[in-house]
């Protein structure tokens, strides 16, 4: 059986791992390589690195660390942040990343998703969606790396998810902004809605606070993976313990 993926996300700023609450007040969490290696050893199924400053600053993710990560870890990893053209993406993939994730640049120019899929295959192309629930609607937000630059788009989240699937995305990471950093559990309603809307894999992001939150999101929404950051960085949840807990709850997990 295909297993559900547990994916630690490392928010990267200036070559360090950081974490903020609802995208604010970024706190230094330590060295990238140390985190990456520890997670791979603890049984993480995949890693995501987000350069949270890149998109809103208009600069590309600093790639020095990508080769170093690729050298030491033996699980797949995805790099996100300010990838604006085919050449940016090619460099990151050539440096050893398995996937690239685009968010704001895809909103600026949706055809970019198709260009990436044609150049590298859909399996490499992840689209990140930052979605905020407001007055009964799920609305896509842009440039969320910097609070001052964050804008609300006119796009409905489910419509955008379907669109990027058609454009050639191989996977979607749905970051539910109302839940991000507050540790009250994943946004079950929204994740159920997106799973119904599309057939490519969906990774849940935003809200994990305890082991039961992972169980709920897998059992209630059928998402393919669950992403979390601070609960893993702070060791509030240990990945190996989490995976044993989920396996005992009859969720398909790689132990």
């Amino acid at each position: 059986m295909l297993t559900k993926r547990i994916i630690p996300c490392l928010d990267v700023k200036d070559g360090r791992v950081v974490k903020g609450v609802q995208f604010r007040n970024h706190r230094d969490m330590g060295d990238i390589l140390e985190h990456a290696q520890r997670y791979a050893e603890e049984g993480a199924d995949e890693l995501v690195f987000y350069d949270i400053t890149a998109s809103s600053d208009g600069r590309v993710v600093d790639k020095e660390w990508i080769r170093k990560v690729a050298k030491v870890i033996d699980i797949p990893f995805c790099v996100a942040g300010g990838i604006r053209n085919i050449e940016d993406a090619r460099k990151i993939l050539n440096d050893g990343a398995d996937k690239i994730s685009v968010n704001s640049p895809a909103l600026e120019r949706p055809d970019f998703v198709t260009e990436l899929a044609e150049a590298f295959g859909t399996q490499c192309v992840v689209v990140g969606i930052d979605s905020l629930y407001e007055k009964g609607n799920y609305i896509v937000h842009q440039y969320t790396g910097d609070e001052k630059k964050t804008i609300k788009t006119s796009r409905d989240t489910m419509e955008w998810a379907k669109r990027v699937q058609d454009l050639g995305a191989g996977e979607i990471v749905l970051n539910c902004m109302n839940q991000d950093g507050v540790k009250k559990g994943y946004d079950i309603d929204q994740l159920q809605a997106i799973k119904k809307a599309i057939t490519i894999p969906v990774i849940a992001s935003g809200g994990a606070g305890k082991e039961e939150d992972f169980q709920d999101v897998f059992e209630m929404t059928g998402v393919d993976g669950a992403l979390a950051a601070s609960v893993f960085h702070t060791r509030q949840i240990h990945i190996a313990d989490l995976k044993h807990y989920l396996s005992k709850s009859n969720i398909q997990i790689r132990l």
Binding site: M1, L2, T3, R5, G170, P201
Partner: peptide, 15 residues
């Protein structure tokens, strides 16, 4: 083969 609740691509860890 497309099936209900089957995401394609087949992406992740399988035995």
């Amino acid at each position: 083969t497309p099936e209900k609740d089957k995401t394609i691509p087949h992406m992740g860890w399988n035995s």
